[in-house]
Nucleic acid binder design. Structure first.
Lengths: 115, 115
DNA sequence: ACTTATACATAAGTGAATTATGCATAAGAC
DNA sequence: GTCTTATGCATAATTCACTTATGTATAAGT
């Protein structure tokens, strides 16, 4: 999932779908490579998505009806744009809330302040 | 790792060592079953550790010199108490800081407030 | 010309977890 | 007094999201 990172790869497990969905919600229609660049930027170079995790996850979300695609040809190059479906928009909210709840629970268990 | 939980099991991946180490730091000498109860309480029943994840992880941390053990017999029952070594105390700090950094990065990527 | 960036895709392997199983004593319910 | 639940440890088999590796191809920079 992560080529290299400041963060332990284990910690990031389970967050990929949430990241993809939320970034697509915030930035609208995007293609895979563009998503990796955006996440890299937003994370301060700390999260570098690998294609091996990215593309299968996008395909899976599409197969589940959470994302829809549109293929664009630029010269001879192909780009596959992804955007949220209405089911996808519901899923983003659920996933983000779930992650926030998880983080709060971790704060309680570890007795740390998170701000 | 988790028998059942409010939180998606995927999210919890990679947090088990951090949880065990921090709970041992905060509460001192504890045995396995006691740790599951404490974590259950601290998490508001949201994190229910399974033995299948708990014991192998404790054994691994002990093998790495992060924990030391003491076996106590109560009647005919055996308890194995774990406590941090000095290496273990260093590790807790590193792990907790790592998790806090990770959470902050997630906050940036997902554009959410965490408090 | 050579290297890096852009852009997609999939197969093989890893490793931390889940699930299942096993053993055994103590306490509580009824 | 037996049956269920709680206490307490341990390990083997399996799962699955990821990493790593590989493949293909065009465009841009040096």
């Amino acid at each position: 999932m992560y080529k290299s990172m400041m963060h332990s790869p284990e910690l990031l497990k389970g967050t990929l779908q949430t990241i993809l969905l939320k970034v697509l919600k915030d930035h609208g229609r995007m293609y895979g490579y563009e998503i990796t660049l955006r996440v890299k930027e937003l994370s301060g170079e700390r999260i570098l998505l690998t294609e091996g995790a990215l593309y299968p996850t996008l395909h899976k979300l599409e197969a589940e009806g959470m994302l829809k695609t549109e293929v664009i040809t630029i010269g001879k190059r192909v780009r596959k744009y992804y955007s949220l479906t209405s089911d996808g928009r519901s899923l983003v909210k659920a996933r983000v809330n779930e992650l926030i709840a998880f983080i709060k629970t971790m704060g309680n268990v570890l007795q740390v302040e998170l701000n």
